[in-house]
Design a protein around this nucleic acid. Structure first.
Ligand SMILES: [Mn+2]
Ligand SMILES: [Mn+2]
Ligand SMILES: [Zn+2]
Ligand SMILES: [Zn+2]
Lengths: 132, 132
DNA sequence: AATCAGTTTATAATGGTTCTAAACAACTGT
DNA sequence: ACAGTTGTTTAGAACCATTATAAACTGATT
């Protein structure tokens, strides 16, 4: 019920698959980061029916376009997504490829002094790479 | 001559291909950003002989490992490299996928207050996404 | 219920990157 | 200079995350 309106209001039909993916992504204590492969595993664990990989991709991209997910820029062969769509920064643990949220109070304001003509700043993202 | 010592000192044999790639990458007025595809085109334009794609990949990765190139984390289906290996930040023009260097004086120091046990900070990179 | 538009799915295609293994080129020691 | 050794290049194949395809299906609308 909780996600039916959210989907309808976004112009997305509340299908069984999308509602199940919503449960996995948004019905959680805390936000989290994931790759499509990790999400696929999570979905398999949480539900008994099967959702095709194509649908997982379609849904993640639909949710990203609607602003319910965002991509995190990291150097990897896989795309990282975040269910935390607020402006925030990240630690990136090179050892295991895991992201950790930095609270804004952990970083302090980023002041970009330079401007590019005819361009607006869409986002400012800090990535702090961690090694042992 | 200029790059022969650089390569030898790095434990890399100064082959014809590596020297040619050095010319394209490092014998320039300014540093620049590139994808492998763009580098391949640049090499084709600058030299008449052909260098195989595998060698371009091998060389770029060898140079990256030696610290003569670095990867820039962006959300893209291609890996972005930078011949500017100093600590600096970037604008990323979403329209055309081009990176622009931000001088450190354009950003001001980034102060990461939080620490992760047993981990060292390897790098801090700011990506400023630009839209129209 | 009939229709329409949107969605799911299995599967194929795409494309950047990496692997393979054979040919080749640079170094070393003599 | 030569032979032996090791590192490098190469064409092509393999890999694999992602996207495209198009037929079956489902939800919304009348
Ligand atoms: Mn990569
Ligand atoms: Mn991608
Ligand atoms: Zn996050
Ligand atoms: Zn740069």
């Amino acid at each position: 019920m909780k996600y039916i309106d959210k989907l309808r209001n976004s112009g997305l039909r509340p299908t069984k698959q999308r509602l199940q993916i919503c449960e996995v992504l948004f019905n959680t204590e805390r936000t989290f980061h994931f790759t499509i492969n990790e999400l696929e595993k999570k979905i398999k664990d949480k539900i008994d029916s099967k959702i095709s990989l194509a649908t997982i991709y379609n849904t993640v991209h639909a949710f990203e376009k609607k602003g319910y997910l965002k991509q995190i820029p990291v150097n990897s062969n896989q795309t990282y997504f975040d269910t935390n769509t607020t402006n925030h920064h990240h630690f990136y643990n090179l050892k295991d490829g895991k992201l950790i949220d930095l609270e804004n109070s952990d970083v302090g304001p980023i002041n970009i002094k330079r401007k590019i003509d005819g361009k607006k700043i869409k986002s400012i993202e800090v990535l702090v790479k961690l090694e042992d």
